[in-house]
Amino acid sequence: MRQITLSTAVNEAIAEEMRRDETIFLIGEDVAEAGTPFKITSGLVEEFGTDRVIDTPIAEPGFMGIAVGAAMTGSRPIVDLMFGDFIFLIMDQLCNQAAKTHYMSGGKLNVPLVLRTNMGATRRSAAQHSQSLHAIVAHIPGLKIAMPSSAFEAKGLLKTAIRDNNPVVIFEDKLMYQDKADVPEGELLIPFGVANVKREGSDITLVGTSSMVQVAEKAAEILAAEGISAEVIDPRTIVPLDMDTINASVRKTSRCIVIDEGHQSFGVTSEIASRLMEESFYHLDGPVIRMGAMDVPIPFSPALEDITVPTPEGVAANARKLMAGEMFNG
């Protein structure tokens, strides 16, 4: 199968869906001729014109609000938010308007929009361009959250998101835009709420999101060499969350580490660990370990930034501790 970058996969998904459905348009800062700073949407304006690939002023709340109104009235906008950190600017439009409209209207109004944005540290961008803020919006009922872990997922999840009748937020890891993966040409739809077992194992379950799936896979390689068999699970969407697959795996292995690049406290790792505690408690042979970004603003200095996010070595070390039955923090 051909290999394409995650960036190309996103571009391809948007183009395919825009060809299929006239009501779809793309809106955001520098999405047209500039193709965004990451060059993800390059070429789209040439095919679809400025009527459907709409450059906006630097006014995130404004174009987000416009997208919500357009979605309520027959359009299916794809909003490009240049950095995930800017999600704080659009919180009212996303969380008070888009997320609640269907419910507040008793099911009369729909908001079928996709908000594409990014996440991920270690790009030396410092505290306001490096955050992974998916847990904050996952907290709000009415929003679906997808986190592609490769070019394959990026295409399949985005196409599914565009066809969903709800507001969907997609967090792409900006460090993975040039990563290549096998991606089929043409139609590729990945259903929401269906986790992917990336690697089977019997001793410990590693649940990873987005780029942390790669971290988990590398950790599994390290552990395999030591005779520890790790299972790696990619939930693909955190809302909805496929707990069935995660529970089944943990009931088999009895041990689990959850890895996510959001800050560790009050985040995705905490949520999954809590649900495992509630739903698979009597199958756990050790505590569920959370591994998120450190609870510090992301620092600029490479010497500091690199230690704020989970690494394969760190995951493997915690896995060894779990296998040995050692206590954590006690």
């Binding site: 997208a67 919500v68 109104g69 357009a70 359009s75």
Partner: peptide
């Protein structure tokens, strides 16, 4: 205000 403007865009 955003919603109204988006409705007009639609």
């Amino acid at each position: 205000m955003g919603i109204a403007t988006g409705s007009a865009l639609s």
